[in-house]
């Protein structure tokens, strides 16, 4: 798999991220594009998990808000798609709003 494909796969939920990460680790020549998008993808996946947990708690407390709050999950999807677009264009641009938080974290991805 080339670097572009790996970058795109790293955004397709946490499963896709794991596949991309394993494949990336096998590579002898690491490239910055895949590393960048692996960081972004992991960041968004973790954010999604946090959001869904928070929403479940809120929905349990205030059931009337549940249907409206479930729309927030859509944000994660949108971020993922934006990341995929970035990867497809082979750009090292962080996703809007939260992307900058992940650029200097997750140093275990070398």
């Amino acid at each position: 798999m080339n670097k572009k494909t790996l970058s795109i796969i790293s955004y397709i939920t946490i499963i896709g991220w794991v596949i991309a990460y394993v494949n990336y680790n096998k590579l002898t020549v690491k490239d910055s594009l895949t590393r960048f998008h692996l960081k972004q993808g992991l960041g968004i996946a973790i954010l999604g998990i946090i959001i869904s947990v928070a929403l479940t708690i809120i929905a349990a407390v205030v059931p009337t808000l549940a249907s409206i709050l479930s729309l927030v999950n859509l944000v994660v999807l949108v971020l993922w798609i934006m990341g995929i677009i970035n990867a497809n264009n082979e750009q090292e641009i962080p996703v809007p709003v939260v992307g900058k938080l992940f650029t200097d974290k997750f140093d275990f991805i070398k």
Binding site: L71, L74, V78, I81, M82, I85, N88, N89, Q91
Partner: peptide, 20 residues
């Protein structure tokens, strides 16, 4: 919302393309 998102993402994609 779906169409708006679609449109937004599309415009994001093309803007990036033009930016590049």
């Amino acid at each position: 919302v779906f169409f708006m998102l679609l449109f937004m993402l599309r415009s994001y994609h093309f803007r990036q393309r033009s930016y590049i």
